[in-house]
């Protein structure tokens, strides 16, 4: 009898240890970055493509001041309030003491330098597909931006979502490696896939989520309730996106809709970034949007 209980106890402990081990934050091998040369100019492109400023600039930032990554924007979600941290190069308030590898771990694995899980409000389920070259260059660019002393604010998340180890389970369940559009029809669409699925993280707003906040990939870019506000984010699959290439280029570059209204809501800040990208990138995004499945 006692032996049976002991066996059960041992099995439970083993299972617990296995779960603990499986939910440990993952890190990349530093050797993977050997030989990569950081290029801050390329890093600026990655910064714009990734839309870092749209979350990490101060709440009242303008087009001009958005390169000061002081943090402080609040994102209200069903799980609590998240506050974007300071990621300026300030040594104490920001990420001034990080190495390039720390940014790789953050973006590809959602793991902090201290080895804890980040909440997926930081879109590492998209950024996981960013190349190490791009991340290393982005890191070099971030170091050129102004340091800001504003301290990061803690997230306001309630039980059980405040247990960070639990995010390991979330990642096990929902962090799918690989691409959604498995076979892009052209090199241009493949480039667009990288910009939309990885860096641009468009799906984070344009795709609906399940009750645990994970993206529903079966409704990829088919529109969703605004994840951090009221209203809906539109369906941009071919089922609904009927703007011409000219319309889309005008929207991305100048922020004008086909009827010459201007881009609104959080998309306004996306366009601030897109408008500074080369036309080839914007055409690649359009090629990708034409290639994804039409979903009503």
């Amino acid at each position: 009898m006692t032996a049976r209980w002991l066996k059960l106890g041992a099995a439970l402990a083993l299972a617990g240890a296995a779960v603990y081990w499986m939910t440990l934050p993952e890190k990349s091998d530093p050797a993977g970055l050997a030989g990569i040369k950081p290029d801050a100019e390329r890093g600026r492109q990655v910064f714009l493509q990734g839309g870092c400023a749209s979350c990490h600039s101060a709440p009242d930032a303008t087009r001009e001041t958005r390169f000061v990554l002081a943090g402080g924007r609040r994102f209200e979600s069903p799980f609590g309030s998240f506050v974007a941290p300071n990621i300026s190069p300030h040594p104490d308030a920001g990420i001034g003491q990080w190495q390039a590898l720390d940014l790789v771990n953050a973006m590809q694995h959602g793991t902090s330098p201290a080895g804890t899980h980040y909440y997926p409000v930081f879109p590492y389920t998209s950024y996981q597909n960013a190349t190490p070259d791009d991340i290393v260059s982005l890191f070099a660019y971030l170091q050129t931006l102004p340091a800001d002393p504003t301290p990061s604010q803690p997230h306001e998340v309630s039980f059980p979502f405040n247990i960070r180890q639990g995010l390991g389970l979330w990642k096990l369940a929902f962090q799918r490696p690989g691409w959604v559009l498995a076979n892009p029809p052209s090199p241009q669409a493949e480039r667009g896939r990288y910009l939309v699925e990885a860096l641009g993280h468009c799906a984070e707003c344009h795709t609906p989520r399940n009750f645990l906040g994970a993206l529903d990939r079966s409704r990829w870019l088919a529109g969703a309730p605004n994840p951090v506000g009221t209203g809906r984010i539109p369906n941009i699959t071919p089922a609904r996106m009927n703007w011409s290439e000219l319309d889309l280029m005008t929207y991305f570059k100048q922020g004008f809709t086909p009827d010459f209204d201007t881009v609104g809501g959080s998309m306004a800040e996306v366009v601030e970034n897109l408008s500074e990208l080369p036309d080839d990138d914007l055409r690649a995004i359009i090629a990708y949007l034409r290639a994804i499945p039409a979903i009503e």
């Binding site: 087009r63 209203g231 100048q254 922020g255 201007t262 881009v263 609104g264 809501g265 306004a268």
Partner: peptide, 16 residues
Amino acid sequence: GEACGACHKAYRKPKE
């Protein structure tokens, strides 16, 4: 476009 957008971004309620 930037000038239109700057005012809309700050002072126009997003469409629902």
